[in-house]
């Protein structure tokens, strides 16, 4: 054995074993497991033919998916939720993008307070927001209408767009806008020709968040929704509040699929790590 090999071997022997790092990795792994297990359980149950979940699963079946697709009320709810999602997303993106742009380009006293106000729907107890809107819509006469539902959903999706577009705007080099204006473009032209194309990733991410938020919203919807025109989450809520129906598993799998799709869109447009 030559000298070099020996020193290599002795260095390896002395390599220290790090107990703490190992412990943290085990703990972290357990936390991710805790996060993912309920989702896996739903997916497994959805593909099982039995009305009650079992573990480990014994058979594979699409029975509950068939039941969902053959059920007229479920399909109507899905259609309604999707329709609502499209309207809410379009309106929220338009309102949120313009507001985020306006506030980012202005300097005035109380700007920070105004920004907090714009983000506050994230933090206000949802039950409180629900009943406040219930009272208002009752007074306005739009309770249990599509309009009320749209307004409620915009309210909770709005902060996400403000945030994602705000991040894009603050990463934008202000010199680009100044360059455009020095070349003779006015503020409106500069916004549409320079700013808008450059903050598109933030807008897309905000749109995805609005869509997903609207599609899954239940806390406010419960207060303002009409019994004849229910969204999917409200219908699920009513179902599991009263009975146990495995077709909810199948519906849930559809929701998870939408979430994964949304993730893929975000990853493709700006990358996951940048949004959150």
């Amino acid at each position: 054995m030559d000298d070099r090999e020996m020193t290599g071997a002795s260095a390896r022997r002395r390599r220290r074993f790090d107990g703490w790092t190992l412990l943290v990795w085990i703990a972290g792994g357990a936390v991710y497991l805790f996060l993912v297990v309920p989702v896996l359980v739903i997916i497994l149950s959805a593909f099982s033919p039995n009305p009650y979940p079992e573990f480990p699963p014994t058979e594979f079946s699409l029975r509950w998916f068939r039941e969902v697709f053959q059920s007229e009320p479920w399909m109507r709810a899905i259609g309604f939720s999707l329709w609502l999602m499209v309207i809410v997303t379009a309106l929220t993106v338009a309102l949120g993008t313009t507001a985020a742009y306006g506030i980012s380009r202005l300097e005035f006293r109380g700007k920070q307070a105004l920004l907090s106000f714009m983000l506050s729907p994230l933090m206000i107890p949802q039950v409180v927001m629900g009943i406040a809107l219930l009272y208002l819509f009752t007074a306005m006469g739009i309770i249990r209408t599509m309009a009320g539902l749209v307004i409620g959903h915009i309210l909770v999706s709005f902060p996400y767009v403000i945030r994602t577009v705000g991040v894009s705007l603050s990463n934008l080099d202000p010199k680009l806008e100044r360059a455009s204006m020095s070349l003779g473009a006015g503020p409106v032209q500069t916004f549409f020709r320079i700013t808008l194309p450059l903050i598109r990733p933030g807008i897309v991410a905000g749109g995805v968040f609005s869509a997903v938020t609207s599609f899954g919203e239940v806390s406010i919807s419960l207060f303002v929704v009409s019994p004849s025109n229910m969204t999917v989450p409200v219908r699920i809520f009513n179902y599991i509040d009263q009975t146990f129906d495995p077709s909810v598993n199948a519906i849930s799998v559809l929701f998870i699929a939408v979430a994964v799709l949304a993730l893929i869109i975000i990853e493709r447009t700006i990358g996951l790590t940048k949004v959150m």
Partner: peptide, 19 residues
Amino acid sequence: LEPTTGEVYIGGRDITGLA
């Protein structure tokens, strides 16, 4: 960092594997 091969001594003491 740990060396792939070789040793480090400080004051005559081998500290290669020491944190």
